[in-house]
Design a protein around this nucleic acid. Sequence first.
DNA 1: AATCTCTGTGTACACTGTACACAACGATTA
DNA 2: TAATCGTTGTGTACAGTGTACACAGAGATT
Lengths: 258, 258
Amino acid sequence: MPRDETADRADGGAAVRRSLQLMWGGAPEPTRGPKPGLSVATIVRAAIDLADAEGLVALSMRRIAAALGVGAMSLYRYVPGKSELVDLMVDEVYSEDLGSDDTVAGGWRERLEACGRQEWALYLRHPWMLQIAQGRPMLGPNSMRSTDIALRAVDEIGLTEEEMLGAVVVLSSFVAGLAKTTIEAMQAADRTGISDEEWWEIQSEYVGPAVVAGELPMLTKVGEAGAFNSMFDHFEFGLQRVLDGLGVLIERRQGDAE
Amino acid sequence: MPRDETADRADGGAAVRRSLQLMWGGAPEPTRGPKPGLSVATIVRAAIDLADAEGLVALSMRRIAAALGVGAMSLYRYVPGKSELVDLMVDEVYSEDLGSDDTVAGGWRERLEACGRQEWALYLRHPWMLQIAQGRPMLGPNSMRSTDIALRAVDEIGLTEEEMLGAVVVLSSFVAGLAKTTIEAMQAADRTGISDEEWWEIQSEYVGPAVVAGELPMLTKVGEAGAFNSMFDHFEFGLQRVLDGLGVLIERRQGDAE
DNA sequence: AATCTCTGTGTACACTGTACACAACGATTA
DNA sequence: TAATCGTTGTGTACAGTGTACACAGAGATT
């Protein structure tokens, strides 16, 4: 990777502009020369399929090109570089949920809950989304529309604009954070072929001495209660706690108003 | 990277055992041969320093070795591979907060709040922690002790063991999730040299048409209220909301008990 | 028909993790 | 003391990465 990190600083945001232009359209299509055999959309689609199937580590320009039956350098006629392609992949993924009707019946809680579940499902479909370092939030039109819908869920319930944004942020932070550890554990189990039970068995060989020494009292207690191996759904539990917490604030604000 | 992904499956957890043995100690030190010039601890320290200073992308075996004044392959006498080294780095980082006295005055809320703040500070010190894919949770002794302390905060307040674990999980999921986006935005601003104001200006060039078209009504409203550029602290806001949410459950459980 | 622009691609370079072979060292053993 | 043998440190090599650059060919415009 001979990518010069300081190059980004020199071009005064030109790289960002290129990404934005690709996402929002508005690139003037040329009139001369041969017709392009590919398109940005097909490249993005192929890249998402590859990342879904084999993970981010397998996502290389050469492999994407091979999947499309072209040479590696052909991609650079459509996309400035890999990082811009990843930006496009992210925004494309956000579009998947936008088709469905987004008006959920019920109050703010039901609407926000639906947003949380949708985001959770998105990460399960595209685990690589959690590994990429998103340079900036809300780069593209689809992720913006997605955020707009989420904000609509907490509109007109007595919160300030900052609090509305805060509510959406705390929910999606929780979802992303939990999804990351959950999915990585699933992938590790899949990759190593070691089940959760085997894992704890191996682990206990080494942890054992610390347990009998009386360190880790809480882990011992919680572990003996079977809390690690149980079917307890941390997503459902956490989702309700976060919504409860937002409810406390919202009720307080509505009490103030009356 | 000619790393064969299926190799992990074949060795029946031997790679995991090697990591565990390195972290928990118990490797029999040899008697023959020349004295080792390095140690696992010094390698881990050098790796953490490098990752702190230049990020995960700069963390290569050659660069770590160069920082220590040895050849790249020398590291492999102490560490089986890069992924095991990263495991060790993670566990080492968790040890940084363990020295301080962990008994915080006050009730569960103050104790849990302290845990959340400590984790937040940890991610600010070591941003690379958010990018690595942790194969398994709680691999090492230090991260386990850290979790043990967190669990102690919610002990004896009427929650089941599963709920205790759930409480810790929801809090640290929120912290990790928000830290990831926050830190990545900070790093992007630093790397590209584009300030938040400039960012929104560039962004609005492309978003503008969508705004005047009446799409993105909420983003328009929230943006015009200045909620994006404000000093609003999303960490503090979210932290209180999560704690509020846990409080609702805890009060309910304590109401049941009486 | 000539020109000019755009597409597609092969090659090359500076990187990466790490398998492998081998020299030098030092404690144990004969 | 001399031979043995496991251990440390290292150089080389290989398969992979992103992408700069030069160049062939196509196709619309002049």
